[in-house]
């Protein structure tokens, strides 16, 4: 057990060091951009993972929450001249509250009912972005979103204009999120969610209010996506309905499934892996999706905990092998 923990700690430290050093390693700016997109996708995949991986309810509305966070924060910055630091949490809050509103009637429904409701909701949100032109400017989108305001720390002032600066901002947010996410998953909340996925009737009899925990997971997952939306808006400076489609929800799903549902490292691995492929294999776009589709089927069938689950199994086997030797 001890050795395993040490190995895990080592991997985490190396991963963090690499993530911090990445923009300084002399890659082209294009790769820093892919780095930022990977970080954003990690946040989105973590959000979905809370609902699907832990609570066992598949949501296809994650891109809609991503969009709500982006639009709410962008509109607050553009129209009311709010600071990013105020608008971003509000964007997250808005997405979370909308999810609670949607979750109340639909989350007591089983499997396909909930999936279809989230899919329909996602479509409605996209139609609103597209057709409410007086506010969202419809298909033209919202240009000229300001970057996050500089922060003065007395001796140094942090700005968030460049790619590298945004990279560090989003990495910082991600690390804080990961600590809280770890706490959540390893607390009684995480246990309750996994119990619900296993057997919700037995879970109720344990004194656990199933609907409350489902809505909590859905709401927190949506708020996380909303926060990501605000970070995205502050980075790209332009948003339009094209980004927040069901296709994006499915991308997020692919990342989570291939990386590994119901684990923390899974969404991280999956998001980096798929984002890299998405960006570098644009030429083969058609073939890429054929492969992803098939891959998703095979992974869910033969390794339901994805790459992360496979790595864990491997390291356990290596450890067992060592013991015998």
């Amino acid at each position: 057990m001890k050795q395993w923990m040490n190995l895990k700690t080592l991997v985490i430290i190396v991963a963090i060091l690499f993530a911090v050093a990445f923009p300084q390693m002399g890659f082209k700016m294009y790769y820093v951009h892919i780095g930022v997109l990977s970080l954003l996708h990690i946040l989105l995949a973590l959000g979905l993972n809370l609902v699907a991986g832990y609570a066992g309810q598949l949501s296809l509305a994650q891109a809609a929450f991503f969009g709500i966070g982006a639009y709410v924060s962008a509109l607050l910055m553009l129209n009311l001249k709010w600071s990013f630091w105020l608008a971003a949490p509000l964007g997250a809050l808005a997405a979370g509250l909308v999810a609670v509103g949607i979750g109340l009637p639909t989350l007591r429904l089983k499997g396909p009912y909930f999936v279809i409701s989230t899919m329909g909701f996602g479509e409605i949100v996209r139609l609103v972005f597209l057709n409410w032109e007086s506010v969202t400017r419809g298909p033209n989108g919202l240009p000229g979103i300001p970057a996050p305001d500089p922060i003065s720390l007395g001796f140094v002032t942090l700005t968030f204009e460049s790619r590298v600066e945004n990279y560090y901002l989003i990495l910082t947010v991600l690390l804080v999120v990961l600590v809280l996410y770890y706490n959540l998953v390893h607390s009684r909340i995480g246990r309750a969610l996994r119990a619900i996925r296993n057997d919700y009737i037995a879970t109720q009899v344990m004194g656990i209010h199933v609907a409350f925990y489902r809505i909590l997971a859905f709401g927190v997952g949506a708020a996380l996506s909303g926060l990501t939306g605000a970070l995205y808006a502050g980075y790209i400076r332009f948003i339009s309905p094209d980004t927040f489609t069901i296709g994006e929800s499915i991308n997020i799903l692919i990342m989570m499934v291939i990386g590994g549902m119901g684990t923390i490292s899974g969404p991280i691995i999956g998001a980096i892996f798929i984002t890299y492929l998405l960006e570098t294999m644009r030429v083969f776009a058609e073939y890429r999706l054929v492969i992803y589709g098939l891959l998703m089927f095979l992974v869910i069938l033969y390794m339901p905990h994805g790459i992360a689950g496979m790595l864990k199994k491997l390291s356990l086997r290596v450890r067992a092998g060592k013991k015998e030797a």
Binding site: I250, L289, V290, G293, F297, I300, L301
Partner: peptide, 11 residues
């Protein structure tokens, strides 16, 4: 659902 969704994307 995830598995058959994968098949749908594939087809």
């Amino acid at each position: 659902i995830i598995g058959t969704l994968g098949i749908s994307i594939f087809l």
